[in-house]
Simulated scan of single mutants.
Amino acid sequence: MNPETEVIACPACKHLVRVPLDWLGTQVQCPECRALFRAPVRTGGTLAGAELLSRPEPAAGPKPAARPDLMLMLPAFGLLVCGVVGAVVNGYLLFLVLGDPAAGRQWAAKQTEAVRKMGLEADPGGTAEEKAAREAEAAEQLLGHFRWILPAALAASATVLAGGLAIVFRRNYRLAQVACVVATLNVAHLCCVPGAVAGLWGLLMLGSEEGRAHFRR
């Protein structure tokens, strides 16, 4: 080491600065962070720590872009739309199944017929009476399943809607994540492809630093 200098750690950024011996005890500026500190003097063979006098003013950077918010608001809008539509559809079907049994059986019969036309279920066969009886039994079984499926789907739609609102109002980060997962898994409505897109997009954005910062503002 050059005997004419002392190596001193800047108290602001810890950058090592070579200070001439005749500068000890005077004000020195760090070349790295531009902070001002008083260089210590050697007392009894020991060099004390430097005294920080002032830190440099942070440079004024550009204003944060609105893009991260926009990239979150788009999936939030998708969650809101899917949540509202799912709540309306599932709420109506639940009312139909529980409030009007005759209309509920008619709707279940149409669903059973549609499944059969798609080739997902074999034709019951037999006489007209036997076929009608089997169709009525299948419709009743389907209706029994929907008595618990529809309330669950309605709750899932409400969760998706609440998650969209959470993103818009920057509240409840965890609820927004849960809503995106629900929408991605298509729990609210089994054919809701837009909900899956919005949910996956929202999850990706919420997992980013920009997405987390959205809820801290």
Results as ranks from 00 to 15, higher is better:
Ala39Thr: 06
Leu120Phe: 06
Ala60Pro: 10
Gln29Ser: 09
Trp201His: 05
Ala128Ile: 11
Ala136Gln: 03
Arg170Asn: 06
Cys180Arg: 07
Cys33Leu: 11
Arg67Gln: 12
Ala188Thr: 12
Leu80Gly: 13
Arg174His: 10
Ser208Asn: 07
Leu120Ser: 00
Pro11Asn: 07
Ala59Pro: 03
Gly164Cys: 02
Asp22Glu: 14
Ala138Glu: 00
Ser157Tyr: 01
Pro56Ser: 14
Pro11Glu: 02
Val88His: 09
Gln106Lys: 12
Val41Glu: 14
Ala133Asn: 09
Leu70Thr: 13
His214Arg: 03
Ala132Trp: 05
Met73Trp: 13
Phe37His: 04
Pro151Cys: 01
Glu4Gly: 13
Trp148Asp: 11
Gly61His: 06
Glu130Cys: 05
Lys14Phe: 10
Ala176Arg: 06
Ala103Asn: 06
Lys14His: 12
Leu72His: 03
Trp201Ser: 08
Phe146Cys: 10
Ala158Ser: 04
Glu210Phe: 09
Cys180Tyr: 05
Phe146Gln: 14
Met71Gln: 07
Asn186Ile: 11
Leu154Ala: 05
Pro151Gln: 02
Phe215Glu: 02
Arg55Pro: 00
Ala39Asn: 03
Val181Gly: 08
Ala139Asn: 00
Leu47Met: 04
Phe215Gly: 06
Val81Ser: 02
Ala122Tyr: 07
Thr5Gly: 01
Ala136Leu: 07
Leu142Phe: 13
Gln111Leu: 07
Leu72Trp: 03
Met205Tyr: 09
Val7Ser: 13
Leu175Tyr: 02
Val41Gln: 15
Ala108His: 04
Gln177Val: 08
Asp100Leu: 11
Ala179His: 01
Gly91Tyr: 04
Cys82His: 04
Trp148His: 13
Thr5Ser: 10
Leu150Asn: 07
Trp201Asn: 05
Ala176Asp: 00
Val81Pro: 08
Leu52Val: 09
Gly99Pro: 03
Leu93Gln: 14
Ala122Ile: 03
Gly61Ala: 10
Gly211Asn: 06
Ser208Cys: 02
Cys10Ile: 08
Leu94Gln: 12
Gln177Ala: 09
Glu140Cys: 09
Ala128Tyr: 10
Arg134Ala: 15
Asn90Ala: 05
Leu190Gln: 15
Ser208Lys: 04
Gly125Asn: 12
Gly164Val: 07
Arg67Ser: 12
Glu129Thr: 14
